[in-house]
Design a protein around this nucleic acid. Sequence first.
DNA 1: CTGTATTATCAAGATACTTGATATTCAAGA
DNA 2: TCTTGAATATCAAGTATCTTGATAATACAG
Lengths: 150, 150
Amino acid sequence: MNKDNPRHEVFGAMQSFGVNSVMFRNAIGKKLGLNITDIGCLNYMLIKTKSTPGELSRYTGLTSGATTSMLDRLEKLKFIRRLPNLKDRRGTMIELLPEARSMILPFLAGAQAAQQELLKEFSDDDLEIVTRFVNGFSKSIQDQADQIDL
Amino acid sequence: MNKDNPRHEVFGAMQSFGVNSVMFRNAIGKKLGLNITDIGCLNYMLIKTKSTPGELSRYTGLTSGATTSMLDRLEKLKFIRRLPNLKDRRGTMIELLPEARSMILPFLAGAQAAQQELLKEFSDDDLEIVTRFVNGFSKSIQDQADQIDL
DNA sequence: CTGTATTATCAAGATACTTGATATTCAAGA
DNA sequence: TCTTGAATATCAAGTATCTTGATAATACAG
């Protein structure tokens, strides 16, 4: 394992990104007066828009009981709402409310602007390479997570 | 904002990676019988090897009091140890114990193997592009996090 | 249909977190 | 040097959150 080999720097970059992502959402959570669990859930909802308690339970690592009370908090705060799940009458659909989205987006604006600038430094071919790598890397840890859960 | 534009797929890939990272470390934490906070801390320590309570407090989003008791737990479980901070006698250095590392690494092995395979599909030039993009993206959210904290 | 699994919720008890106070040390300036 | 204000980590008390185990409703497989 040669650490001077540029082929290994990319792993470090991915790790740093993971760390910075966490610190980023924690910073937003603190501003909104939310605990770490709740802002983690909202971060996920911001990406997925719709989800279910079961899925959120798997993402957050919480038990189903804790997930219920997390959703109770977020519902009371008008960040999400529960809807009937038409595909499974036992279940519930969780929806991020538009007002919640507009409450969070301002915190992302600066980063998004910087990301648009970053994009200009790369060709379409470049970005195809990046996407392919990141998706591959992402899959490697997703497969491993599934393996561990089995 | 054209969603069919491949220039936007790369953002989705980064988001998915962030989500998968969280689920990955939660899966490992569950196997080790650790709570979400503690596995988050260990994940960070696995990257940094050495840290301080203050730094871990900023990463986890915990207050200093909660950080102290988190470190008490991890110290009792022999995952970390506290050492005197030679550069600041108020402070403490936190060190990941080698035994802890060897306890966690087996869970990463499968993913690391897949990542080595992935690496083969990319040239050095490709990887330089990926690294540059990921670092730039990482910086965009780090800067924004700093901005929010101020 | 019948039995088993899955989904989400609830209540009680266990765990972890926040707040505010404290002691120590640092860093800057008189 | 000596003083002052800030930063480090810890602790104890009170609060918030989480886990566990039980429950009801529905899905799904045989």
